[in-house]
């Protein structure tokens, strides 16, 4: 575990309760997920029990507790995306990746998740892979994009 960035995050926090969520966010940005070890470290720094930290972290959809895949796929589940066929995109991805939403593929290459809305409703349906948003997707376009990531 890369302890340096983590300890600098903790040192830079004011140590108050208010910092809990921002610290969790920074830890996840560096490590990709919230590990048991990091919860322990946060607990000692912020003086909040590990139980309590888990209680807060599991409340929010943003936090994950298992290592992420190499590529992070987010299917937008906003209303416009739903109306324009978002469900079919999920069916396609689950089938192509042989993984359910919330899971990581066996080879660790992709993890599949859903998001409430990315705010690109005018260009629905959209799928986000890592930092790139793909707009006006269709099942066939999505499969093409996915192939590019698979081959890369």
């Amino acid at each position: 575990m890369a302890s340096n960035p983590l300890s600098s995050i903790l040192e830079n926090s004011s140590g108050s309760r208010e910092d809990l969520i921002p610290v969790l966010q920074k830890v996840q940005a560096v490590e990709g997920f919230i590990s048991k070890e990091s919860v322990g470290l946060i607990s000692r720094r912020l003086k909040i029990s590990e139980n309590e930290i888990h209680g807060v972290a599991t409340f929010y959809a943003q936090f994950r507790f298992t290592p992420p895949g190499e590529h992070h796929i987010l299917v937008c589940m906003g209303t416009a995306c739903h109306v324009k066929g978002g469900a079919q995109l999920v069916i396609t991805l689950e089938h192509e990746l042989d993984a359910k939403t919330g899971e990581t593929t066996e080879d660790g290459k992709f993890d599949l998740d859903q998001v409430a809305c990315l705010g690109c409703c005018a260009l629905a349906p959209v799928v986000k892979i890592d930092d790139k948003i793909y707009s006006q997707m269709s099942v066939l376009k999505l499969r093409q994009v996915l192939d590019e990531y698979k081959e890369a």
Binding site: R17, L20, P22, L24, Q25, G55, V56, Y60, A61
Partner: peptide, 23 residues
């Protein structure tokens, strides 16, 4: 303060809890 993916935090009293570092 960045939200962390909870729709209910748009409700003002929930938002306050979230800023304070709670559920």
């Amino acid at each position: 303060k960045q939200g962390a993916g909870a729709f209910v935090c748009g409700e003002e009293t929930a938002l306050l809890q979230s800023i304070e570092g709670m559920r």
